[in-house]
Amino acid sequence: MAKGYGQFCPLAKAAELLCERWTMILVRELSAGSRRFNELRRGLPLMSPTLLSRRLGQLASAGVVQQVRDNDGAWAYELTQAGRELRPMVELMGTWGHRWVGSQLQEDDLDVGLLMWDIRRGVDPAHFPPHRVVVQVRFSDAPGGHRDWWLVSEGGETDLCMEDPGHDVDVVVLSSLRALTEVWLCRCTIAEAERQRSMQVLGSDDFRRQLPRWLQGSPLARLGEASLREVPVES
């Protein structure tokens, strides 16, 4: 851990633990339900496995994270009570970031794998029928091998596939990476993206109507949008 602030202030002591690089993003992933090491890596693709292990160890030593056995006997990580008490902080920081510093997306901010992983766990399958519904996402500008993705919604769960699962496709979303990212961040609606011709949705009228409610946006982005509606930004 980096050198501390040399202050007894509780805020300084919390900052010594939580303000190191990647730590709060790791807490975000754990708060979002990622439990296994490989799941955490998918949500933190630029974080090295060595640093991830180190940060998990630091949080465990501080009593924020604990290692447990999943039902299949594999090791997993979960937040302790101390860690769960950080969730409002994660939500507040996400809301603040959406409201004040998240309006401009740089090219380095766009990550197709991270976007699709976040969409997989953030969509609301309750807005699709309980039977299997397949949404294919095709990016016009993603790197080779990452242009086609499939989201399979069935029985209240959503799976993400990088290879064709072999099922009939109900909806096809043709989009640029930036356009779908902006929709997921609640910066743009699907209808607006279609009008701008940065996105096209193909499928039956019924599924097209349900898609915006299913693809409702990142939970943190939705909190940010709600804050903008409640308290107008001063000019």
Score class of each variant (00 low, 15 high):
Leu223Ser: 08
Gly83Pro: 02
Leu30Lys: 12
Pro212Leu: 14
Ser31Met: 12
Ser53Thr: 11
Glu20Cys: 06
Gln67Phe: 02
Cys161Val: 02
Arg99Thr: 02
Pro130Leu: 11
Gly102Phe: 01
Val201Gln: 02
Pro232Glu: 14
Gly4Ile: 03
Leu114Lys: 05
Asp108Pro: 00
Pro130Tyr: 06
Ser48Trp: 08
Leu92Asn: 09
Gln7Leu: 05
Leu160Pro: 05
Ser61Asn: 12
Asp205Arg: 15
Asp164Leu: 03
Glu39Pro: 02
Val137Met: 01
Leu52Glu: 13
Arg84Tyr: 07
Gly166Glu: 15
Gly57His: 14
Ile190Ala: 07
Trp150Pro: 01
Val123Leu: 07
Val133Asn: 05
Gln7Lys: 15
Thr189Gly: 10
Gly144Arg: 15
Pro45Ala: 12
Met116Trp: 00
Ala14His: 11
Glu85Ile: 00
Lys13Met: 08
Asp206Gln: 13
Trp75Gln: 13
Gln210Trp: 15
Arg42Pro: 00
Asp108Val: 04
Leu160Gln: 11
Val133Ile: 07
Gly217Asn: 06
Thr80Ile: 00
Thr189Lys: 00
Gln104Val: 07
Leu110Ser: 05
Asp205Phe: 08
Pro45Thr: 00
Val65Gly: 02
Arg21Gly: 03
Glu182Gly: 00
Trp149Pro: 01
Arg87Tyr: 03
Val169Asp: 08
Phe128Arg: 14
His167Met: 06
Val134Thr: 09
Ala191Leu: 10
Arg147Asp: 08
Gly102Arg: 00
Ala74Met: 12
Val64Leu: 15
Asp168Gly: 04
Thr23Met: 13
Arg121Asn: 03
Arg42Trp: 06
Thr181Ala: 13
Asp111Ser: 09
Ala74Cys: 09
Asp168Cys: 06
Phe37Asn: 07
Pro129Trp: 10
Leu177Lys: 01
Val134His: 06
Gln58Trp: 13
Arg132Thr: 05
Arg209Met: 07
Val231Arg: 15
Phe8Trp: 13
Phe139Asn: 04
Arg132Gln: 13
Cys188Asp: 10
Arg54Val: 04
Pro45Met: 12
Glu225Met: 12
Val134Leu: 11
Thr158Lys: 07
Gly94Thr: 04
Leu46Lys: 14
Val123Ser: 05
Gln7Arg: 15
Leu11Val: 05
Gln58Asn: 09
Arg120Ala: 08
Glu85Leu: 06
Asp206Trp: 13
Phe207Gly: 01
Gly224Asn: 07
Leu30Val: 04
Trp100Gln: 10
Phe207Pro: 01
Leu174Ile: 03
Arg99Val: 02
Arg120Val: 04
His98Thr: 05
Leu11His: 14
Met47Asn: 11
Leu11Glu: 14
Arg120Phe: 01
Arg41Phe: 01
Glu225Asp: 08
Leu105Asp: 10
Phe8Met: 12
Pro10Lys: 08
Gly83Trp: 04
Gly33Leu: 02
Leu215Asp: 03
Ser34Asn: 09
Val135Tyr: 04
Glu39Val: 03
His167Gln: 11
Glu230Tyr: 05
Val101Cys: 07
